[in-house]
Amino acid sequence: MSIVAYIAVMAVTTYLIRVIPFAAVRGKIKSRFINSVLYYIPYAVLSAMTFPAIFFATGSVVTSSVGTVIALLMAYFDLPLIVVALSSSAGAFITALIMGLI
């Protein structure tokens, strides 16, 4: 099958998944229950995506864990996103250097 067909099918599927709820839901949802679920979902999704994946991200549980602890500490003290992200990576990199993994 042609690569263009694959890419088109892939793109259309992904687009429809995103756009249908976005375009179709117009009015405000009144249900307190549904609104509560929608309020909690972003936090739940991000949390489920981060854990446990973050512990395997670098390919080494040890360096990933060091990066994770750094990210948790820096986020706890309200540092900006990019600072948290880069420090976490730097911590993992330095740990790999110290351990002689590199």
Partner: peptide, 22 residues
């Protein structure tokens, strides 16, 4: 070694987004 360490960036961002309000 660099790309492996950089793969932590997105997860670090996620933590920085969800932890402070919690």
């Amino acid at each position: 070694s660099v790309t492996a360490a950089l793969s932590l960036m997105l997860y670090g961002m996620f933590i920085a987004i969800i932890l402070p309000p919690a």
